[in-house]
Structure formats: C-alpha cells, structure tokens
C-alpha cells in the first residue's frame, strides 16, 4: 500500500466519521453557550437517525440521489421538535438539565423502535438504498498529491460540516444574536436587566442544538449505519459533547476535536486494512475513542471554562 493510498483512506474515513460529530458538537455549543447543558444530544441524534432512515426508506424512489440530503432536513425537523422537550423542561419548567437530558436519552431509542415496530413489524429497519457516497471536489481534486489525498473520494457532508462550523463561529462571535446568546449563558441576570429576553434566547440555543443534533444523527445513519435500530447511535452524542468541551465551547475548537474523535473512531473500522495498526487487537481500537475522551477531559478540563451560568436555571423575578 503506497503512502498516498494510506493517507487517502485514513483522511477520507476520518472525514466520514467526523461529519456527524461536528454537526452535533456545534449544536451542543449553541445550547451550552445559552446556558443549557445538553446531555440529550445522544437522544437527539437517535431521533435524527430515525427520521433520516424512515424518510430515506419512504422516498428513495421519488427523490433519487437527493434523498439523503432531504433525509438530513427530516432529521433536522424531528431533532428540533424533540429538543423542544428539553427546552420546555429546563427553561420553562426549571428541571435539572442532566435529568431532562437523560429523559431524552431514555425516550429516544424507545420511541424510535416503538414507531419502527409499528411501521415495519420489526425492531430494525432494512438497509437504505440511497446513502451518501463518495465525492470528488471539482477542481481541487486535480491538485497533485494534495488533491488525491484530501479531495478525491471524500465526504461532501464533512466539508459542509466544516463550513457550518465557521458559520457558527461567525454567528456566535460576530453577530448581535451571538453576543446576546452568549450573554444569557454567562450572566442571565445582567442580560435580563438590559432588556434581553433570556427565556427566548435560551429556547433558541436549545432548538438550534436540536436542529444540528438531528442533522448529525440523520447523517450518521445515512452515511455509516445504513439502517435504524436501538443500537444505531452508540455514544456518538456523548462523544460530540466531549468534543464540545475539548473544543472549549468554541465552534472551531469543537470542530477540531470532532475531527480528532472521528479519526479515532474510524481507526476501529479501517485499522484492519492498515499496516502496523492491524496488529492491534480490535477491542483496543474499539474502546480507544472512549478512553481518549476521558483522558482529554482529565488533561484539558482544568484549562477549559464553561459558560458561567451553564446548567443553572434562571428564574425571572416577577
């Protein structure tokens, strides 16, 4: 295997595995910047995966190659609706953020499989026919060496995710909306005094995380898993959350961390084809992303700072 093919394989699989994590980690960033801890990202991804797969199975004949992209839209819509539970519970009903997030994680697989069983008569869907294939970036793939490695047979969605990360950065740090969103996560009392609508902004943060988490789930299901069952999403939501913390609640940082997690996840899959790495027993590669998450938390937690009012309910005095 030449160096070029190895790099090409590693980079393209890293991008495929990172893309869902990038979307979801960005979602988490919006929610936590607004002061709502979102452990429910895992559940949101599960609902997104469910929506994406059901849409794909139902409409693949009609929409052809556009189906997976529209499946992402379906995932976004269902993610938005599902995250409304978290928003209502934490913002309006003053629930503990972790309890509410846990409810989402318990609810999502149960609800998803319940509906799947009613629709298809079994707890697992068939494989989808239209999934995200590989894509050559027009123009850029012609560049010698770099072109074949980075831009040939690559994941189009990953490049979209990276682009969205920059949009998210711009939105959070360069717009009035972003400033306001961050202010309710840092000091809701002060924001309220200045006339900002704390509750509305916090709802916005959670709902954006629902949209992005739903996209992340639908993307994972349609590019990697290929079907929906209770074990389609296994910890990717939590991993995204860890990526967000590792990225210090910053969209660009979260994206970088998500790429790193995508890399370690993809190693468990493509490692068997690579020299040296295929000597390592599979179980080590399988647990590596989770061990790395813990190590990263331990090493970086002291240096990273969450928004000051993250996880604290704001009760408006009347």
């Amino acid at each position: 295997m030449s160096v070029e093919t190895i790099l090409q394989l590693v980079i393209s699989s890293t991008l495929v595995y990172s893309a869902p994590l990038i979307f979801t980690a960005l979602g988490g960033t919006f929610s936590e910047r607004a002061g709502i801890v979102n452990v429910g990202l895992e559940g949101t991804m599960i609902m997104g995966a469910f929506a994406g797969v059901v849409f794909n199975l139902s409409f693949a004949d009609q929409f052809g190659h556009a189906t997976p992209w529209l499946g992402l839209v379906a995932g976004a819509v269902i993610g938005l609706i599902f995250s409304l539970i978290h928003a209502i519970a934490t913002v309006t009903l003053r629930a503990d953020h972790i309890v509410s997030g846990t409810v989402m994680n318990l609810m999502a697989p149960a609800l998803g499989v319940y509906i799947i069983k009613l629709m298809y008569g079994k707890g697992q869907t068939s494989m989808i026919s239209q999934n995200f294939g590989y894509w050559n970036v027009p123009g850029l793939s012609k560049i010698p060496f770099i072109g074949p490695i980075l831009f040939t047979k690559t994941s189009s969605t990953a490049w979209v995710a990276i682009f969205i990360a920059f949009v998210a950065y711009w939105l959070l740090y360069k717009t009035r909306f972003g400033l306001r969103l961050r202010s309710v996560g840092e000091n809701p009392q002060a924001a309220d005094t200045l006339g900002l609508k704390v509750y509305t902004l916090r709802y916005a943060g959670v709902l954006i995380s629902g949209v992005l988490g739903g996209i992340g789930g639908a993307l994972f299901a349609q590019s990697i898993a290929g079907n929906f069952s209770a074990s389609t999403i296994v910890g990717q939501g939590y991993m995204s959350m860890a990526a967000m913390i590792f990225g210090r609640w910053n969209p660009i940082g979260a994206m970088g961390a998500a790429l790193f997690f995508g890399f370690s996840q993809s190693m468990a899959i493509v490692g068997a084809q690579l020299p040296v790495i295929n000597q390592i027993p599979a179980v080590y590669l399988q647990v590596a992303p989770y061990v790395l998450t813990i190590l990263i938390l331990v090493i970086f937690f002291a240096k990273s700072k969450a928004p000051a009012a993250d996880g604290i309910n704001y009760i408006k005095s009347v």
Binding site: I88, A89, L93, R94, V99, T102, L106, P109, A110, V113
Partner: peptide, 22 residues
C-alpha cells in the same frame, strides 16, 4: 403493543419528576 411503550412511559415519568415544577 410493542414492549418499547414501557420505556416511553418510564422516561415520561422521569420527565415529570424532573419537571415537578409543572
């Protein structure tokens, strides 16, 4: 009725415990 209904009920109960303010 699929068994998963029970997990939906369980999750809902915990939702209302969390949102006991309601």
């Amino acid at each position: 009725v699929p068994t998963e209904l029970v997990s939906v009920v369980t999750a809902s109960i915990i939702f209302f415990i969390g949102a006991n303010y309601l």
